[in-house]
């Protein structure tokens, strides 16, 4: 039995990692404009720079973001004991959006300086952690339920302020705000990717080490506590880890909906409810899914680019409904 679970875990890990690897290798070659492979091989413009500076970093960003979103989605579903929990349930996406929108609309210059937007979005995400930490300290009753309620409040407040800033913004900034709020995978510098990977990869590893305990959390506080698991502590740590994952990636990409909900649910039907299988599968599967969605986003109506969030919802939504109905 012991062998069997390990064996399954290894198979799941290998299969999902292979999917992510295939996406990483294949997706950069696909796109709206055809690619001249001879030029690409000779490292000649325009195909080589397009490949190296645009498509490859985009694919890598999609892989990292998809991994972070679906890992945190799966984890929040465990911590909140709520199948409908998403990475944005706990307010981090809205807070990051508020930070970004504030940076865009309040900056004195007309053209957006992206590092500032990223930093402000990160600050928004960090503010949520601080807020929840203060709440947890002042009140003894810190539970998944209070987290969820706090998240709803944060979501409401942040959306309201975003709307306010948006309504006050001029036409240029208003466009930029709308564009950021749509969310999308863009080409970023490799240094940004490296920074992002330096956060996402270790945090994902840390979350994976938590999976045996996450299984017990779904039994509820009493049973978990009777098996030596402190739900309060796990919930707090998981919340911070998930917020870091979602905050850092959302800061760069803007909000991308549905990935963190759909991917864990699809995979749950394939690998079962054990988080020791589900979480690694979600990490790689989420990355592959978003990389594919981004490829579609830039190919389907090329040269017009569709926001990737539209693709994730249009592709994932119906598929999800079909899965639910075919149960």
């Amino acid at each position: 039995m012991a062998i069997e679970l390990r064996h399954r875990a290894r198979t799941v890990l290998a299969a999902s990692a292979l999917a992510a690897l295939l996406a990483a290798v294949i997706c950069p070659f696909l796109g709206g404009s055809g690619m001249d492979y001879a030029k690409l091989l000779r490292h000649e413009p325009p195909d080589w720079p397009i490949f190296v500076n645009l498509r490859l970093p985009r694919t890598l960003l999609a892989l990292l973001t998809g991994a972070a979103l679906s890992a945190s989605g799966a984890m929040f579903q465990a911590l909140l004991r709520d199948a409908l929990a998403t990475p944005s349930s706990l307010g981090v996406t809205a807070a990051a959006a508020l930070g970004a929108v504030a940076a865009i609309s309040l900056a004195p210059v007309e053209t957006t300086w992206f590092p500032l937007v990223w930093l402000c979005a990160l600050a928004g995400a960090a503010a949520v952690i601080v807020l929840v930490a203060l709440l947890a300290r002042s009140r003894k009753r810190f539970s998944a339920y209070t987290l969820l309620l706090t998240g709803i409040a944060v979501n409401g407040i942040c959306s309201a302020i975003v709307l306010l800033l948006h309504s006050l913004a001029g036409i240029t900034k208003s466009f930029q705000i709308t564009h950021w709020l749509m969310g999308g995978i863009g080409a970023v510098e490799y240094s940004v990717l490296l920074l992002l990977a330096a956060v996402v990869v270790p945090v994902c590893f840390w979350v994976l080490r938590l999976t045996r305990v996450l299984n017990v959390v779904s039994y509820g506080d009493t049973w978990a506590a009777g098996r030596g698991v402190n739900c309060r502590q796990i919930t707090w740590r998981g919340f911070v880890a998930g917020t870091v994952l979602v905050g850092t990636t959302t800061a760069v990409t803007g909000p991308i909906a549905f990935v963190g909900l759909i991917v864990p649910h699809l995979l749950r039907r394939v690998v079962g409810p054990d988080y020791r299988l589900l979480l690694p599968a979600s990490v790689f599967g989420g990355g592959a899914f978003l990389a594919v969605c981004d490829t579609l986003a830039r190919s389907v109506l090329a040269p017009i680019e569709i926001p990737v969030g539209v693709i994730t919802a249009l592709l994932g939504g119906p598929f999800f409904v079909w899965l639910l109905w075919s149960r």
Binding site: M1, R81, R212, N215, Y219, T222, V229, P273
Partner: peptide, 25 residues
Amino acid sequence: PANVPFTVEEVVLTGRIPYGRGLYE
């Protein structure tokens, strides 16, 4: 506990969490 999606065997194995060091039993 309600809404536990695990099998009987997996539920019984939760009794081993206090001894657990690694990811697997």
